[in-house]
Design a protein around this nucleic acid. Structure first.
Lengths: 213, 213, 213, 213
DNA sequence: CATGAATGAGCTTTCATTCAT
DNA sequence: CATGAATGAAAGCTCATTCAT
């Protein structure tokens, strides 16, 4: 019907065949980007597929619905960040806080985290099982690790001391970073406090709270 | 079919006719509920209209597009919460913190706040002007008020003191509540820490940070 | 975007507004034609809507799914044909048979019947309730009426006679017409026996079966 | 990845390789089942292939389109049933009718017949050549054979008799069975008359029509 | 102002067909 | 020959928006 003279070497619909596992990861990468940018409803399967480098129909060979893509995406993303071990068992308060903030802000600065968090906020009610699982497998262990770390520190400094506030409520130690993270979800970068200011304030607060007084 | 002599003016299917201003508020109320529940894209004009007690077509007599409803909604919702004046100029630290937390959690517990915040997170990029305005007219003044309050308190306690951390970075004083608020946006109530625990921890942290050491 | 000079009196998408009851009948008329022509699956909602004189979306204001259109269509079509009363109570066999065949072939020649029958054969398993209802409300009463008619005739001719075969099994009296009807569902008109031949053979068979011997 | 020394020739996922003729028959068997169950349009090539024990792509090695499968299926199915010869040349009317009904109902009870008939009714217009061929190669010879049989019988009983109705119009002799067959295409088994009743009524009608009077 | 039928673009999903492996 | 990922053209259905009533 459309006769071609000197046909191009390859038609545009290049039929690239990849191992399914690779494709699936590409699709989830693309989905994370598109879902985070537009939200679940406004995200178009077309866009996800395009971004993943295949056609809309091709995506359905890997996932059987938009919803399945969404859940697979969260399942992959909601893995616990590891806190690691501090370089030395008995750091001073400042060194400990600096190390902790390094770890914390390193986690929080992964752009993927913002994307996932935005999705969780927007679509939490769509995936109740997912958020419950997130609390148990991600939040709890992380808070527990922070709490243990701070408890050990306090015990090292002052044996027999009453348990410190931050050791009892480790989530308090994260709040300034979480607060900043939420603002990042809403405000464009140029309207945010500069990261160093955030961190410096956070640092001072932790030191204050860990100080013996 | 139902012949009536001296029939009332109301034809079947005709709904109540209200003053435009009232109708608009009802529509925005309905819109807040529906948008918060489903997100901007998944919200249907039909649902908003129904919830506001009129028909889809009727809604378009008040707003000319879905987007206009959304913007009007945010414009109405994004008004600064007033901090009020503390009952006395020179409260003790505990009384001041208790009063501040009363004010703060009273603001944060309005269910409308959660709805708006969820929308801001999900749709921030759709309404950049709105979020910029929000920062200037809502966030900044509120933080400034908190900062001033804490600065006055510190000055009252210890004249000539170096400016306190919380007075310099009043957002730090809000972080635990903001943190808790974010968790409310994601987790169902039964997976959250109980409010009293949140508040108690928050209180202890503020007292620690305000203490002279 | 597409500026128009001397705009036509009416854009092509004429927005004709009809009473819902009228529209629904038009849609079912169109649906019967399209479904019969293509079968349930191959029929396109677009085609039905177009044929009914509205847009695809408009059809969905009247029926909420393709399936609902299909069921409404059958529900409307599957009404019992009335046999009527013979002109005189004691006709001779020939007059009775002629009258019966008039009635029968008048019913069977309605083109709608062919369309519905084709749909029933093709999609019977999709609508089990419908076919059960069809048997009870259409087939049974019709057969009962034929049986009664023939029983009265036999009794009139020969009181105290044993019940005639056709009176006991009235469906036998219809079989030649049903047979011909089935062939009409499969073969194009030019490959069918001519209608007069069908009817003449049918007539002879009935007379033979009603004769005393 | 799974290095194997002297690995067996069969890679994972490889199905059995059969002679083409066998495969084709399996495919047509599967196609008959699936097409009859769902109709042409709703039948999926995937389902046919799966049922035939190969993959979609594999099916296309044997047939080049869905339509070709359909036509091959009909071509294979639409072969004339042979009437056979009655056990004796001059049976009595009852024996002849019983033998004829044995033959007839044996043909009609093959479930394949129902499947093909349903397809013919539903998709007749898709394959006009096929149905024309069916009339010539299946229907006509069968009717001719029945007609000849009945003509011989009448001649045997009463030489010089006028040609009997059934001998002239042999299709009449089949009508009750065809009628019953059509009902089988529409109604579930539990709503049908029992087969013995059908056959008994059919038998009585034929005997009546063959009787001398 | 209000109603709700109607439009039409756009969305998710399906599936016959192709083709690299 | 066989597999199954990939394509691309629909198809069913939705919904913001319009407009006759």
């Amino acid at each position: 019907m459309d006769a071609q003279i000197a046909a191009p070497a390859r038609r545009e619909g290049t039929r690239l065949r990849l191992p399914p596992a690779v494709r699936s990861q590409q699709i989830l990468d693309a989905a994370l980007a598109v879902f985070a940018e537009r939200g679940y409803s406004a995200a178009r399967i077309d866009d996800i597929a395009l971004r993943a480098g295949l056609s809309k129909g091709g995506l359905y060979a890997h996932f059987s619905s938009k919803d399945e893509v969404f859940e697979a995406l969260l399942a992959r993303a909601l893995v616990a960040p590891q806190l690691g071990e501090p370089p030395s068992a008995d750091l001073g308060a400042e060194a400990l806080v600096d190390w902790l903030l390094d770890e914390l802000y390193a986690s929080f600065h992964r752009p993927e985290l913002r994307a996932v968090l935005r999705l969780l906020v927007a679509e939490a009610e769509r995936v109740p099982g997912m958020v419950a699982r997130w609390r148990v497998t991600v939040i709890e262990p992380f808070l527990a690790a922070v709490g243990q770390l701070l408890a050990r520190h306090v015990a090292g400094q002052r044996p027999n001391a009453v348990p410190s506030l931050l050791a009892r409520e480790p989530w308090l130690a994260l709040s300034p970073a979480v607060h900043a993270l939420l603002m990042q979800l809403i405000l464009p970068d140029d309207l945010l406090y500069p990261p160093e200011r955030i961190r410096q304030a956070h640092r001072e607060l932790l030191l204050l709270a860990l100080a013996r007084c």
